[in-house]
Design a protein around this nucleic acid. Structure first.
Lengths: 189, 189
DNA sequence: CCGTTAATGCAATGATGTATCATTCGGTAT
DNA sequence: ATACCGAATGATACATCATTGCATTAACGG
């Protein structure tokens, strides 16, 4: 049989605590508040303004540990406020958030996520997207970007912009998935 | 003054030999023919068929050393044949070419390029896109993907798909650009 | 020759992103 | 005050990227 049943079952587990692993508890409200605090700081430091619109957009992005598309954000904001912004408004807000460095773009998904563990300007990170629960986690990318720089320089290419991102199974899903599959083998002969 | 004039001047130089550096000569026809030969082999090896449509699409992609968007390909084919395919036809052909491994996608540009130095399945490469002349070059990415694997494994993430790509100045543009800018400083006080 | 599968054609639509121009709002020089 | 300026937002339209669903044709093995 195909694994679709198992996947559905796993997904209900995910939904108990969306985007945050399976067993852990996570105070999402506090998490967004602290992200917002860092965002305020980042905008201040750069002489930029965290306007109400930008803040609303940031709250949507930070309020999920998934990467959201611009139109997802648009939908969520419309559901909350009752009125729908023009796409360009959200894109402009996103541009400011990107410039401030408080959100990042996942090129391979055309989607955006908030830094929850901020790399204050200095350290480079890469995004890893879980294909099961969609959570985005960031890991240090120093070695990766160094390797890209080395490979580029070796052929005379002057690298000014590097993209690196991955997809696969996050720690929670990687450990849980085999268990669920094995369980199914027993319970569904 | 802004560098726009310099950039335009440089661009005319680029156009003398689009996508292939500034001083070198490049037999583009032969280059496409050999790419096509490798494509035929790749399709054969994989038990896939290089159909006429797929070949036409491949020729468009391989006929440029830039990365082309699907609608660019569509436009070019329409200009040649007089009739315009539906987008889906091109996308399906691209899917086959991607599956055969003879073209690759640049996620950060939503565009496709042909391998001109084929890595027959085994070695991983990354694409570097020149921001001046748009040429795509590929360099070995073994170290980069190894670093991504290491970084992922370190945090328990099971990486199944990795994307790495860069943008900057290709060797030709990197050496030519400063010269042109310096020349302008002299000739346009 | 027939049935099956792969490939293509065709129409519509969804999804993502931008150009252009008008308006609002907060500061600030006069 | 008020007149102006620049940054941010609003509004409409459009451009670009990609897929769904279904009909048709071509290729291949019996």
């Amino acid at each position: 049989m195909t694994p679709s049943v198992q996947i559905d079952r796993l997904h209900t587990i995910d939904l108990q605590n969306p985007g945050h692993g399976h067993g852990e508890r996570h105070d999402h409200g506090a998490c967004v508040v602290s992200a917002l605090e860092r965002a305020r700081t980042a905008f201040g430091d750069k002489g930029m303004k965290l306007t109400p619109l930008r803040q609303r957009v940031f709250e949507e992005i930070a309020g999920s540990h998934d990467a959201l598309g611009a139109y997802d954000i648009l939908d969520r904001m419309a559901r909350k406020s009752g009125e729908r912004l023009a796409p360009i408004s959200v894109y402009r807000a996103i541009d400011a958030l990107l410039a401030a460095g408080v959100v990042h773009r996942i090129e391979s998904k055309n989607a955006f996520y908030a830094c929850h563990a901020p790399h204050q300007g200095q350290e480079r990170h890469i995004a890893l997207v879980c294909e099961r629960c969609q959570t985005v986690i960031e890991v240090s990318g120093a070695d990766i970007f160094a390797a890209m720089e080395t490979a580029s320089a070796a052929c005379g290419f002057k690298l000014s912009l590097a993209v690196a991102e991955g997809a696969g199974l996050c720690p929670s899903c990687a450990t849980l998935l085999p268990i669920v599959l094995a369980t199914d083998l027993v319970t569904q002969p």
